[in-house]
């Protein structure tokens, strides 16, 4: 089937078609443990995750982009009451006289279903005993181990942005600060430019004046903010790495070091000021993170 976004073709497997779709070897190894409380919503042999479903068969695990299940496909339903001789019918088409060998009550009417969540969220709708024995559920379901899903091994390592590693932290932090600086500086420059329009000049000259002011202020502030965020993130990740955990002291220390380095060439007094300001900034950032987390 075709995803609207990617135009790539995926075949949805049934239990009897151990088709590798998106082979993800890393995750193939991890469906051995029990689902924890934060489990993904799961269908008999289809595990739904945030952005894709994991379909598992005794021999393979595959991922399908979630776009493929926005509408619950009829052949997917048909795989619940599929019989041996018609099991490829969704692929090759089946004659209308062909009836499934045994039809199971699904707990919902497939023709009425418009979207997946209405099925999976209905209590009792997916009782494994109601499903076809060929799904092999009496032998136990294979589960997805969500520990692998953790984004970072670091203690308290998760930030507002769900970063996977220090590079993500660096890129997102720097990018956000840079854009913020660019925007704030640009707005200030725009206001400054609008205030100092040459009187009685043409529209083009006025536009140029404003643009000149914006491009004078915006990049200056953006560059400074970006460099500060870059240095801060490098220090922060380094300290995290050596301490093996992340807490507010790491952030404060990273802020202090950043401030000291940033103004180290200007003398002792500016350096002290900038250290204090950056430490306070890091503290504010920690507070903001807590505030958002709650």
């Amino acid at each position: 089937m075709v995803c609207p976004n990617t135009k790539k073709k995926y075949i949805l497997p049934t239990t009897h078609l151990p088709t590798q779709i998106l082979a993800d070897e890393k995750r193939t190894a991890i469906i051995k443990k029990i689902i924890q409380q934060k489990s993904p919503i799961f269908l008999p042999h289809f595990f739904f995750r945030r952005d894709r479903i994991l379909t598992s068969t005794p021999s393979s695990v595959s991922f399908v982009p979630a776009c493929t299940i926005e509408k619950f496909p009829s052949y997917l339903l048909s795989s619940f009451h599929i019989s041996h001789n018609t099991q490829m019918s969704w692929l090759f088409g089946s004659s209308s006289t062909e009836k499934p060998a045994s039809t199971q009550s699904l707990g919902f009417d497939p023709s009425q279903v418009a979207d997946v969540s209405s099925i999976i969220l209905a209590p009792g709708a997916l009782d494994s005993s109601k499903l076809h024995p060929l799904a092999g559920l009496d032998k136990g379901i294979e589960y997805l181990d969500l520990e692998d899903d953790q984004l970072t091994d670091l203690e308290n390592g998760l930030s507002i942005i769900a970063a996977r590693n220090w590079r993500d932290n660096l890129c997102y932090g720097t990018g956000t600060m840079y854009l913020l600086g660019l925007g704030v500086g640009g707005a200030y420059g725009m206001q400054e430019g609008l205030a100092s329009l040459p009187a009685g000049s043409s529209g083009k000259l006025k536009l140029n004046t404003v643009l000149n002011h914006i491009t004078k202020r915006g990049p200056f502030l953006g560059n400074s903010a970006g460099v500060l965020a870059l240095i801060y993130n490098i220090f922060d990740s380094t300290i995290d790495h050596f301490r093996g955990k992340h807490d507010d002291f790491n952030s404060l220390a990273a802020g202090a070091l950043t401030g000291a380095l940033f103004r180290s060439a200007a003398g002792v007094k500016p350096m002290a000021y900038s250290t204090a300001i950056m430490t306070a900034g890091a503290g504010a950032w920690c507070a903001l993170k807590r505030f958002v987390a709650e």
């Binding site: 993800d24 890129c171 990018g175 956000t176 840079y178 970006g226 460099v227």
Partner: peptide
């Protein structure tokens, strides 16, 4: 051919690309 799961989805990846390119330029 598998989809690229190492990159984030579209609107947020812009931030990351801004930061990545900026850091690359600075370094």
């Amino acid at each position: 051919m598998s989809a690229d799961h190492t990159r984030d989805p579209c609107p947020v990846v812009i931030l990351s690309d801004f930061g990545g390119a900026f850091s690359m330029g600075v370094i």
